[in-house]
Design a protein around this nucleic acid. Structure first.
Lengths: 84, 84, 84, 84
DNA sequence: ATCCATACAATCTCTC
DNA sequence: GAGAGATTGTATGGAT
């Protein structure tokens, strides 16, 4: 594609290939999203607070060292302004 | 979990199970996102405009009937205000 | 606009009016966003961690009672799974 | 704040000042968002499709030259893969 | 290093 | 009242 105004026959096939590969990945992603939604529904059905569950997952995904450092700065700032 | 203030031993296991299932799904999702990024990079390396590719995928994902209807309304409104 | 396929002369004026009012509001919003960015830059220039500042603002915006309740549930869940 | 672990009395005042300025900007932003919502509601009440109105505003906000260029590439790609 | 753009998460509204 | 869809804010990665 040296010339942005034209597409060779070969490039046509490539383009379509890229699009279809991306679409397949999107389908897989949608399936995973469905699964996750199902798990959350199940948890909710057993009385759990899904918002909190997601927050825990988020916390666990963070780097512990970084998390503690940010906590420290937050506390420092909060004390500087006299609490929330 | 009839009492929101306490969690039975059984519920503890359920909670951890939900969290771990969700985390596994997140990992899979991240892997798919990586794959998609790789495909986009490859397409970009061959001179394609990735933004346009994603727009095409988005257009293809839409319901054709709905798409045409929205197009019609958009054209109607645009003509009403004398074009863009 | 009883018929979605046609727009009366009166409606044309209304439509353009709505669009222009919205655009003006968008301009104002953009200006405010610029201002906020400037304040953050200034804070950053004085050595503050802007991410934490924004977190504090977010915390202050929340309802205290609700915040504490969510904290309690979070702690309950965390203890149930043995900490982070 | 040469030392990230301490905050001087002067810095305390600066920090609070930054936070309050940001909070005021947020209030203004919220007010504008309310106004915009009201305009949209009014438009909807007169039978207009608010989603399309927002799309028009988005289109008008774009650089015309850039818009046409992207349109051209999109058409080129679409013809390359034989339409949508 | 800053700025932009994408992607993710959360909130909120509208519909059923 | 629950679920879906849309919008906004946030975070991360890429480009300049």
């Amino acid at each position: 594609m040296s010339d942005p105004d034209t597409i060779t026959a070969a490039a046509q096939g490539r383009l379509l290939s890229f699009i279809e590969r991306l679409e397949r990945l999107d389908e897989d992603r949608a399936a995973l999203a469905e699964d996750a939604k199902g798990v959350l529904q199940e948890a909710k059905g057993e009385g759990f607070d899904t918002k909190i569950i997601q927050k825990i997952i988020h916390l666990r995904a963070q780097d512990p060292a970084r998390r503690m450092e940010e906590e420290a700065i937050l506390d420092l700032y909060l004390s500087a302004i006299g609490g929330l």
